[in-house]
């Protein structure tokens, strides 16, 4: 059995919207294992993004326990959570969220610099972009790149330091199917080659078709957790 990277136990998350309290998660349990290529699916409002935010130490649970790499997030302060995000987690956002004034290479390099990587960060940034087919466009700024290209830069930024866990929120939402498929193949390649773990929140059937594990949420609870047989996966066979 693979190591458990993330353990979510009986977690609730409530939001206050004016006078109304919204129960986004209602006693959710989930374990994420090393090497997972997991899709979290479910209708809007089911709690997918909330779950990713909790696992990514971007938000805190109302009750229950979220443990990431053995660290109970509820006991960690702001600074330690930021440190955890910086050193062990990678994020890919739906809207790319690149720094607009930096080039593709500088965007990747910036996070590496935050992580304390020395002068070699320039080469790491370039080779990561090159691996993702962006070597020729490394010196372009985000506004000079297409949506697919920007998302590949965002992936490069998330994976350049080889974090153990990459969290991607609707990574294909703004991409056409060709770009989306290319991106998923790249990420699965990274999972296979670099022993990284990927968790996606998605509505996209294409993402689901690539996943090795599909977790379905409804009303803030896990309603199904399905392991797929990799050998039956057409995409896997195609690789």
């Amino acid at each position: 059995m693979n190591n458990t990277l993330v353990d979510v136990k009986n977690v609730t998350k409530d939001y206050r919207a004016g006078k109304v309290i919204v129960h986004a998660l209602r006693g959710l349990d989930l374990a994420i294992h090393e090497g997972d290529f997991m899709s979290i699916v479910g209708p809007s409002g089911s709690g997918k993004t909330t779950l990713l935010n909790l696992v990514g130490a971007l938000d805190t649970a109302t009750s229950g326990e979220v443990s990431v790499f053995g660290n109970d997030l509820s006991t960690m302060g702001r600074r330690r959570r930021a440190d955890l995000r910086l050193k062990s987690l990678g994020f890919v956002f739906q809207a790319y969220n690149l720094i607009p004034v930096l080039t593709a290479r500088e965007n990747v390099e910036f996070v590496l610099e935050l992580q304390g990587v020395g002068s070699e960060r320039r080469d790491i940034a370039f080779s990561t972009l090159d691996d993702l087919g962006m070597g020729d466009l490394a010196d372009r700024q985000p506004n000079e790149l297409s949506g697919g290209q920007q998302q590949r830069v965002a992936v490069a930024r998330a994976v350049a330091s080889r974090p153990r866990l990459v969290l991607a929120d609707e990574p294909t939402a703004n991409l056409d199917s060709e770009n989306a498929e290319a991106l998923l193949q790249m990420m699965r390649h990274l999972r296979d080659e670099q022993a990284m773990t990927f968790v996606f929140s998605t509505h996209d059937p294409l993402v689901v078709s690539y996943a090795s594990r599909v977790v379905t949420l409804r009303d803030g609870r896990v309603v199904s957790d399905e392991l797929k047989d990799p050998t039956s996966d057409a995409h896997e066979a195609g690789n």
């Binding site: 720094i99 607009p100 996070v111």
Partner: peptide, 15 residues
């Protein structure tokens, strides 16, 4: 929004 993104990547408020 951009600052939120940088914070989520682990960039500290000091930076």
């Amino acid at each position: 929004h951009e600052f939120g993104m940088l914070l989520s990547l682990g960039c500290g408020p000091g930076r």
